[in-house]
Amino acid sequence: MSTTATLPPKKVNRIGLEVQAYKGGKTTLCAGCGHNAISERIVEAFYEMGIEPWKVAKFSGIGCSSKSPAYFLNQAHGFNGVHGRMPSVATGAILANRHILGIGVTGDGDTASIGMGQFMHLLRRNLPFIYIIEDNGVYGLTKGQFSATADLGSKLKTGVVNDLPPFDCCALALRWGATFVARSFSGDKKQLSAILKAAIAHRGLSVIDVISPCVTFNDHEGSTKSYAFMKEHDEPLHEVDFVPSFLDISVEIPEGELREVAMHDGSRIRLRKLARDYDPTSQINAIQALHEAAQKEEVLTGILYIATGQPTLMDMLNMDDQPLATLPESKVRPSPKALEEIMEELR
């Protein structure tokens, strides 16, 4: 069935770079940490998409997840910000240079607790930006406290039970303005890879919540963010294929089995129907599906929602196409005549 997921077995990508050019430093996270798998998928996705690595800028806050930008794309600038405030840094940087392809990596603590305010406002602005939440329901660097995405009734290793309801970051993203919302599992290589590539092609804000088990503090029985739990409860909405604009592949697909979403750059997302026929362009459907899944203790994965062609922050600000950062003085300093005109008005 696969028409797209595997590219020709070449040593270089379409811009002539080897995969090495997309790698990062050696990870210092725990062996088996879901975050490492996500870093590998990010390397893969940017390599396969043939993005110049220096066009990318990586952003993170604080936490285990936020260390990971050091483990991919060494040739991209990185910014490890303060806890929960990565969205503002990324917003500033992308406003300064709209040619930057921004990717942020955050965690459930960094987003759903200390960073909730900035996350919500990032959603409203539809900044062209990929926002990945490495979601394990637990604070790792501080050694195992619940986060705000921990499920009701889930258990810490110490036996402490969480009695507060979780935030669903996808539901928030859907409701408050993200134009691309997906959930995936760090253990699902194929799906995560396709979602990342679609997010790279998306013009607008992509929020990807990736369940990424913490092998040290939250992979035991009673956890709802463990490998074992995900194997049982992962409920893919569809099979996701991504067809980049530079691949011209047309295959006859029997009607009814496939939904195709055309993206602004000519690439296409192909969603193969599984148990249900899911329409990812309807916000209301998506919210309903999330609610129903939560009741059934299912974790819905796949592309929950996509809206193409929505105005981005740059559109709303009517910004120059050139990066503001490098505009010449002649464009940014008004003339002596302008100053004289202003002075005259104040006399």
Partner: peptide
């Protein structure tokens, strides 16, 4: 087109975050 961007941020933590992010990127 505007040769500037003005954003009314959600609070001062965000406004200085944007300022520093923008400064980092050359604005």
């Amino acid at each position: 087109k505007a040769t500037f961007a003005v954003v009314q941020a959600e609070d001062e933590l965000a406004s200085i975050g944007m300022v520093l992010g923008a400064g980092w990127a050359g604005a």
